[in-house]
Amino acid sequence: VVSQCEHCRQEKLLHEKLRFSGVEKSFCSEGCVLLYKQDF
């Protein structure tokens, strides 16, 4: 499944979907998940 990563904003293969404040977010890698959590 290809989707837009919430952190790097590129269309890539889906690595993980997480829920932040009740909204589902898509990420392409574990690195982007960690960076997004730092900024959140």
Results as ranks from 00 to 15, higher is better:
Ser26His: 13
Gly31Glu: 15
Tyr36Thr: 09
Val33Trp: 07
Glu16Ala: 09
Gln10Thr: 06
Glu30Thr: 09
His7Gly: 10
Lys12Ser: 05
Asp39Pro: 11
Val2Phe: 09
Arg9Phe: 05
Cys32Arg: 01
Gln4Tyr: 15
Arg9Tyr: 02
Phe20Leu: 11
Cys28Met: 03
Glu30Leu: 09
Lys17Leu: 10
Val33Glu: 09
Phe20Asp: 03
Val23Phe: 12
Glu6Gln: 13
Glu24Gln: 05
Lys25Met: 13
Leu35Arg: 14
His7Ala: 07
Val2Trp: 10
Gly31Thr: 14
Ser26Gly: 04
Phe27Ala: 04
Lys12Asn: 07
Cys32Lys: 05
Gln4Pro: 15
Tyr36Pro: 09
Glu16His: 08
Ser3Met: 11
Arg9Val: 01
Lys25Gly: 01
Glu11Ala: 04
Gly31Lys: 13
Val2Gln: 07
Cys5His: 02
Arg19Val: 13
Cys5Ile: 04
Cys5Tyr: 00
Lys12Leu: 03
Lys17Glu: 06
His15Trp: 05
Asp39Lys: 15
Gln4Ser: 14
Cys32Thr: 00
His7Ser: 08
Glu30Gln: 12
Gln38Val: 01
Glu6Asp: 12
Val33Gln: 06
Arg9Ala: 03
Lys37Arg: 04
Gly31Phe: 01
Arg19Thr: 15
Leu34Trp: 11
Leu14Ser: 03
Leu18Arg: 11
Arg19Asn: 15
His15Val: 10
Arg9Glu: 05
Phe20Ala: 09
Gly22Arg: 01
Phe20Gly: 05
Glu16Cys: 09
Val2Ser: 07
Ser3Ala: 09
Cys32Val: 02
Ser26Met: 10
Phe20Pro: 11
His7Thr: 01
Phe40Lys: 11
His7Lys: 11
Gly22Gln: 00
Ser29Leu: 02
His7Pro: 01
Cys8Trp: 05
Ser21Val: 04
Leu14Val: 09
Gly31Ala: 11
Tyr36Ala: 10
Cys5Ala: 02
Leu18Gly: 10
Gln10Cys: 10
Lys37Ser: 03
Ser3Arg: 07
Gln4Glu: 14
Glu30Ser: 10
Tyr36His: 13
Lys37Trp: 01
Leu18Met: 10
Lys25His: 13
Lys37Gln: 08
Val23Asp: 07
Val1Ile: 12
Arg9Gly: 14
Cys5Asn: 15
Ser21Thr: 09
Ser26Lys: 10
Ser29Lys: 06
Gln4His: 15
Glu6Leu: 08
Glu11Pro: 11
Asp39Val: 03
Gly31Leu: 08
Gln38Asp: 15
Gln4Gly: 12
Gln4Met: 15
His15Lys: 09
Cys28Gln: 03
Gly31Asp: 13
Ser3Asn: 09
Ser29Pro: 04
Cys32Ser: 00
Lys25Asp: 01
Val1Asn: 13
Lys17His: 06
Val1Cys: 09
Lys12Tyr: 04
Gln10Glu: 06
Gly22Cys: 03
Lys17Cys: 04
Arg19Leu: 12
Phe27Gly: 10
Leu14Gly: 03
Lys12Gly: 09
Tyr36Asp: 07
Leu35Asp: 14
Val33Gly: 07
Gln4Lys: 15
Gln10Phe: 01
Leu35Tyr: 05
Cys28Lys: 03
Val23Lys: 08
Val23Gly: 10
Cys28Leu: 00
Ser26Arg: 09
Val1Met: 15
Phe40Ser: 12
Leu34Gly: 12
Lys17Pro: 01
Glu16Met: 07
Glu11Ser: 11
Val33Asn: 06
Val33Arg: 11
Cys32Tyr: 12
Lys17Met: 15
Leu34Asp: 11
Tyr36Arg: 07
Leu34Thr: 11
Gly31Pro: 01
His7Glu: 04
Ser21Gly: 13
Glu6Ser: 14
Glu30Asp: 10
Phe27Trp: 06
Tyr36Val: 05
His15Leu: 07
Glu30Met: 08
Leu34Arg: 14
Glu6Ala: 15
Cys5Val: 02
Gln38Gly: 06
Asp39Ile: 11
Ser3Trp: 00
Glu6Gly: 11
Gln38Ile: 05
Ser29Met: 02
Leu14His: 03
Cys28Asp: 00
Val23Glu: 12
Cys5Arg: 01
Leu35Gly: 13
Arg9Leu: 08
Glu16Val: 15
Phe27Lys: 04
Leu34Glu: 15
Gln10Met: 12
Cys32Asp: 00
Tyr36Cys: 06
Val23His: 06
Gly22Pro: 00
Tyr36Met: 03
Glu16Phe: 14
Glu16Pro: 06
Ser21Ala: 13
Arg9Lys: 09
Lys12Met: 08
Leu13Pro: 08
Leu13Arg: 05
Val23Arg: 06
Ser26Ala: 07
Leu18His: 14
Asp39Gln: 14
Glu6Cys: 13
Glu24Arg: 01
Glu16Thr: 08
Ser29Tyr: 02
Lys12Cys: 15
Leu18Phe: 10
Phe27Glu: 02
Glu6Tyr: 05
Cys8Pro: 12
Arg19Ala: 12
Gln4Arg: 15
Gln38Thr: 07
Leu13Trp: 01
Gln4Trp: 14
Gln38Trp: 01
Lys25Cys: 05
Phe40Gly: 10
Glu16Trp: 07
Glu24Met: 05
His15Pro: 11
Glu11Val: 08
Gln10Gly: 04
Phe27Arg: 03
Arg19Pro: 09
Gln10Trp: 02
Glu24Ile: 05
Gln10Val: 04
Glu24Asp: 10
Leu14Met: 10
Glu30Arg: 01
Glu24Thr: 06
Glu11Gln: 10
Leu13Thr: 07
Leu35Gln: 15
Tyr36Lys: 09
Gln10Leu: 03
Cys5Thr: 02
Phe27Thr: 02
Glu24Ala: 02
Gly22Glu: 10
Cys28His: 05
Val23Thr: 06
Lys12Pro: 00
His7Trp: 12
Leu34Met: 13
Leu35Ile: 04
Ser21Lys: 08
His15Cys: 09
Phe27Ser: 06
Leu13Gln: 06
Val2Thr: 14
Val33Asp: 03
Lys17Ser: 05
Gln4Ile: 15
Leu35Ser: 13
Val33Lys: 13
Cys28Ile: 12
Gln4Thr: 15
Leu14Trp: 00
Gly31Arg: 14
Leu35Met: 12
Cys28Gly: 00
Glu11Asp: 12
Ser29Asn: 02
Glu24Leu: 02
Leu18Tyr: 04
Phe27Gln: 05
Glu6Met: 02
Leu13Ala: 05
Ser3Cys: 09
Ser3Glu: 05
Ser3Asp: 07
Lys17Thr: 10
Ser26Cys: 07
Leu18Lys: 01
Phe27His: 11
Gly31Cys: 03
Cys5Leu: 00
Gln10Arg: 10
Leu14Thr: 07
Phe27Met: 03
Glu16Tyr: 10
Glu24Pro: 07
Cys8Thr: 00
Lys12Ala: 06
His7Met: 09
Gly31Ser: 14
Leu35Glu: 13
Gln4Cys: 14
Lys25Pro: 13
Ser26Val: 07
Gly31Asn: 13
Gln10Lys: 09
Phe40Val: 13
Cys32Trp: 03
Lys37Cys: 14
Phe20Ser: 10
Glu30Cys: 11
Gln4Leu: 15
Cys28Tyr: 01
Asp39Gly: 12
Leu35Asn: 12
His15Asp: 13
Arg19Glu: 14
Arg19Gly: 06
Ser3Phe: 08
Phe20Glu: 12
Phe27Asn: 07
Phe27Cys: 13
His15Tyr: 12
Glu16Gly: 04
Glu24Trp: 07
Glu11His: 15
Leu18Trp: 07
Cys8Leu: 02
